[in-house]
Design a protein around this nucleic acid. Sequence first.
DNA 1: GTGAAAGCGCTAACAG
DNA 2: CTGTTAGCGCTTTCAC
Lengths: 377, 377
Amino acid sequence: MMETFPGKRRPTGLDAGGRIGMAERAATIKDVAAAAGVGIATVSRVFSGTGAVAAGTRERVLAAAADLGYRPSALGRGLRTARSGGIGLIVPDVTDPFCAELTAGVLACARTLGGHVVVDAAHGDPAREAEILDRLVEQRVDGIIAVPAGDESGWRGAARVCPRLVFADRALPGLPEVPAVLADDAGGVRALVEYLAGLGHRRIAYLGAAAPGATPGVRERAFRDAHAPAGLVLDEDLVVPARPARDAAYAAAAGLLQRRDDVTAVLAAGHLLGEAAVLVARELDLRVPADVSIAMVDDVAWAELCDPPLTAVARPARDMGYRACELLLRDRARRGPAGPVLLPTELVVRGSCGALRSARPGGRPSGRSRPHAETIR
Amino acid sequence: MMETFPGKRRPTGLDAGGRIGMAERAATIKDVAAAAGVGIATVSRVFSGTGAVAAGTRERVLAAAADLGYRPSALGRGLRTARSGGIGLIVPDVTDPFCAELTAGVLACARTLGGHVVVDAAHGDPAREAEILDRLVEQRVDGIIAVPAGDESGWRGAARVCPRLVFADRALPGLPEVPAVLADDAGGVRALVEYLAGLGHRRIAYLGAAAPGATPGVRERAFRDAHAPAGLVLDEDLVVPARPARDAAYAAAAGLLQRRDDVTAVLAAGHLLGEAAVLVARELDLRVPADVSIAMVDDVAWAELCDPPLTAVARPARDMGYRACELLLRDRARRGPAGPVLLPTELVVRGSCGALRSARPGGRPSGRSRPHAETIR
DNA sequence: GTGAAAGCGCTAACAG
DNA sequence: CTGTTAGCGCTTTCAC
């Protein structure tokens, strides 16, 4: 009675032939081993690709597994190997075209590398960001890609807890040791300002600046810095703060365009800001580009559908996601010391920006503008 | 020597105090237990919320855990409880606005229910769909939400393997036992046809029909069925097949609008089809809605940015995702016998559809139309 | 080549 | 209320 029975008197209710009406328990490695008449180690070798297994044995195992509908459990494997094979992705909003495209890139890369992706959206809330991070660590993901929204302090702690961390789209100045994949936003904005200046615009507004107290972002800095080289003088009143949310953006755009009828071009720092500019211009019966030129950062799908189609700075969102994932999974060996990866942007010129043919470079052709005239160029 | 040593002679190399210079191994439940001077079960109770723990003990455990930076491993927990706390989401394309919105809904619901979401995109490829499904099962997700693209046969097998499965956006006729969350596309299309008919249109084209051999979808059927009640007669030549991809959609739209200059309205079965219709109309110098009216299914962001803004059937994508997730996680008790959940659509009327004021209800006002005239109505 | 056995980190009985 | 113990499904030495 102290025998450990290698076959008779199974402890649980389900025995070889009598699985009558039982809840279909998922087959385990043991079931397969038994069915194939081999040890569980052999089954493991067959499925994990480790070690050598005789061809005949492999066949038997595979057959048995197929028969039982066996799927190795990532839970068991993960527990043993301390790697889940998954990566976490934290974006501000999966609904945002840029984030969506970036996500697609991550998925594409993860797929080729054989990993799965746990996605979540933080909606710009640091607390939520931390919470998601926490869950991801619990899941024991092999690495995390984040488009950080929250404050630096939150991520500082995270950087230590995280298995591996890569920032995308935005890097945190205080955390230079965290690898990052960025778009050359500064270059894009600079190109846009130069383009606009070349068209004759002198009063270019920037929609989407940081709040008065906060530190300005890369794009805003680039906007400011591009003025002197382009022969423009910066008007602080034209650098208008706006969060990248529909309501805030609309309010800011409306305020700007109503307050200053002398701006001839608006550079929107993001697609939501661009959307707002277009909507407000339409509301105010401003013709684009005859009355105002509009351009924006982020070349989303609607830019081409718009009338006129919008000039925009295209950022390689998908590539960014792909590269970030690659950095995380592929290059886990070497610590990338070479600073952030900077991917080039491209200025896509469409019809929303016009040359200033008017004799009043400082004002819009429409009614209320100031009366002082100048000659062409 | 047959004693199973409850404390002495640790088999592995790392013993209580000798962790000198070791790679920072993540703290486990044992570490916390030791640090807090309690048993591992107590630590487990504290973190899993199961059972009762004295307030003082809980504090000690929490303090020790915080000190060690302990995060319970979902791997260990999952292995033990046979539930990973995650759900899988399979969409055709995360980049598609509808899918993205649906995803957001799933994330929102998963969040409130405390689960994480593994997302992947199948890109309309049944093989890839099956592959993703496989990985998800390996991950032992608690359930799967899918916007099925592939053929029924693939999903038939899946339906058995899956822990729990819910379809979103599209149900498979051959698998009525799988719960589904759908939008009332038929109602939306019907409303659109009625609206167009009310405006005086007689020749309405449907862009996005199934390929000649394939079985028509819900929308196409609704389009056909709506004709008689609205006093229209269906012209088979106006039901034009097109896959929901940019190139295919554009080709189909161009073919239609060039071949038939007597269509006065185009009903696009999806936003990509709508986009194509708008682009082709612009290319052909057709004014909207003066020359052609355009409307589509799916009220995406650009519909409002378009000029004129596009009339569209809005589908509650986010709600659909939320409900699907709810169905999966919340209502796991009862088998929903009540057929698929049907969420209402809404016709959003904008400026892209005009009344036929012309004396030729059968033709566009522009040049090449046939000369036979009719009276109004 | 292959099998036996020892855990990975955790929860769920079951004793105290 | 708390500790001990037995696995969950898997990989991995280590013998054979």
